[in-house]
């Protein structure tokens, strides 16, 4: 499954983190929401809602990458792990904070529009 676009509606998010579980399972075959390439943040105790950050494939990460490790493929920015030297300039460049790192990895990871978050989201808070 691949998607053409990715949108969010904070008002529908209930903070279950199933999207992150699905993302990590798809890309790493692991049970670990910390390896999901999107972020859910609770805004509590006030104003009392969740916020979803997802990639919209704007390409700012690719523009910032000095090693051309982030490349465009059919409208989606992907990571060439061989080329990534973990300088994290892409992390700083991303306007939504959705270029991710993980202590077990020495390369960055990001959303590739696989669409599993959309498929698994129980409320329609993440949609195409």
């Amino acid at each position: 499954m691949t998607i053409k676009s990715l949108h969010t509606n904070d008002a529908l998010c209930t903070g279950c983190h199933i999207c992150q579980l699905a993302c990590a399972m798809c890309h790493f075959r692991e049970t670990n929401p910390k390896k999901g390439a999107l972020r859910i943040t609770g805004k509590f105790p006030s104003p009392g809602h969740f916020h979803i950050d997802v990639c919209n494939q704007c390409g700012d990460c690719a523009a910032a990458c000095p090693t051309e490790a982030i490349y465009k493929d059919n409208g989606v920015y992907k990571v060439d792990e061989e080329k990534c030297d973990y300088c994290l300039l892409c992390v700083d460049a991303c306007p939504y904070g959705v270029i991710f790192t993980h202590p077990s990895m020495n390369v960055i990871f990001k959303c590739d529009y696989c669409g599993l978050c959309v498929h698994y989201c129980p409320t329609g808070a993440i949609f195409e």
């Binding site: 008002a11 209930t14 903070g15 279950c16 983190h17 009392g48 969740f50 129980p122 409320t123």
Partner: peptide, 19 residues
């Protein structure tokens, strides 16, 4: 109620958050 709020990995958000 201002939002539904659930526990980890739950598709049935029974928690209600109120203002």
């Amino acid at each position: 109620v201002i939002t539904d709020k659930c526990c980890f990995a739950c598709p049935t958000a029974c928690g209600k958050y109120s203002h």
